[in-house]
Design a protein around this nucleic acid. Structure first.
Lengths: 243, 243
DNA sequence: AGTACTCTGTATCCGACGGACACAGTTTAG
DNA sequence: CTAAACTGTGTCCGTCGGATACAGAGTACT
């Protein structure tokens, strides 16, 4: 019960040092053959190909031509390696489109976030639960809030909007990654359709919706749809603040 | 690369049988001392207390007074056990509030979903990526779509709305579970605030937002806020369909 | 009633994984 | 030139998921 709690604190300290600490160059001893960036890159390559289950200290070490234990000179443990991989994979936040309004900026922000999660599907599973955020991750958040300054929303509302958009991007990336072939609606048909076949009386509304979705041949529009709904709702709120 | 793909098919078959197959009562041999429900319940209790990392076949077996290998007579493997736990933990979808409009129904649906994820935080991590859904999980989806029938939306749009709401409930449950003490805004202050302290020039908008959020002393309103924005957006769309 | 068959739980074993620890080699500070 | 510090390696251990073989329990058939 408290096992996860007690050394969870120590783990947070270690990861914080790893993500935010200044890279102190030691003065003696042989030169390190590896760098944190190289290790994170190797880990990302493996996780991109085989997911988090395929990520092994052994495999990371092999891809860098080192022994497994050599990695522990750079990274306290596997959890911290994954944390470092997340920070590296999200990367620096992109520059906002100049001269655009808050809506276009947030739209672009959410789509960029979606793209990152699409490129690194393992990041979805790795970013559940409490964790220490790094500079890059915080930079993305900063950029979303910067887009909202001057809209009349208060701080809490701005944070809520950012959380809302981030959740949608995450959710859609997961939805799309889960069904890696074709459009979401297409995979919905093959995956859900197989389950629903022969159970029409039990899920009538679901059957009708899936059938209609397949008939309309609507392509990958789930991201656009949710984004439009959310931003419509936010715009409505902002308009009531600036009558 | 194809390792996850090849036996992933077999795993899906097994889990499908487990979730959708009829419980065939064998005619010979000694009576089973366990039931699938009991196993799933034991697993849920452990995961509720210590998370998915604390879930071990050993511990599940111990809590049922059986050997570890006895579980494999009921469940093909740990992945399938987790799948069964998910299906059991979400449970049957609640009855919709009678006589309510689509908006109230969906509002209630999303909050119920949020509650389930709050009660079983491990379910968030367990439901990432492609997976086989069970009858209960599909029942929840059915209920959301049933609430939307008659609004004039087509099947694809109805599915998109359901995905949008589900994502928000998941996202907020994760956000709240990540910071288990106090309100989200409060934990945001202690967690983010600690990171931001001393870096004011780097994250100005973030600093301002967090400070303002703490000053307004807004309590757990992120769920309400996002829900209101989303449903506002959906209502706007429905109104344009029924002028 | 007895026998053969089938199903259950157990005991033992294995490979993979994360990680601790001691050691040898290498580079720089004094 | 020597001592200190740092790096990578080899070895070892505990834990976990899972395969397999086996012994006992209960039922169907003769």
């Amino acid at each position: 019960m408290d096992r996860a709690g007690t050394d969870g604190v120590a783990d947070k300290r270690k990861l914080y040092e790893l993500l935010w600490g200044t890279p102190s160059a030691p003065r003696r001893g042989p030169r390190p053959t590896l760098t944190l960036a190289a290790i994170a890159g190797a880990g990302i390559a493996i996780a991109d190909a085989d997911g988090l289950e395929g990520l092994t200290m052994q495999r990371v070490a092999e891809s860098l031509d080192v022994t497994k234990m050599a990695l522990y000179r750079y990274v306290p443990g596997k959890a911290e390696l994954v944390g470092l991989m997340i920070e590296t994979a999200v990367g620096e936040p992109p520059a906002p489109p100049q001269g655009a309004g808050w809506r276009d900026q947030l739209d672009d922000w959410a789509r960029q976030m979606f793209d990152r999660f699409r490129r690194h599907p393992w990041a979805l599973a790795a970013t559940v639960g409490a964790r220490v955020m790094g500079p890059n991750e915080l930079g993305w958040l900063e950029r979303a809030l910067a887009a909202l300054t001057g809209t009349g929303l208060n701080g809490g509302e701005m944070l809520d909007v950012a959380v809302l958009l981030l959740g949608h991007a995450r959710n859609l990336a997961q939805q799309v990654s889960a069904m890696d072939t074709g459009t979401p609606e297409q995979a919905l048909e093959s995956g859900l359709g197989a389950l629903l076949r022969g159970r029409e009386e039990r899920f009538p509304a679901l059957i009708a919706a899936v059938g209609s979705a397949a008939a309309h041949a609507a392509q990958d529009q789930a991201l656009d749809f949710g984004l439009a709904r959310i931003l419509d709702g936010v715009e409505l709120l902002i308009r009531t603040r600036h009558p």
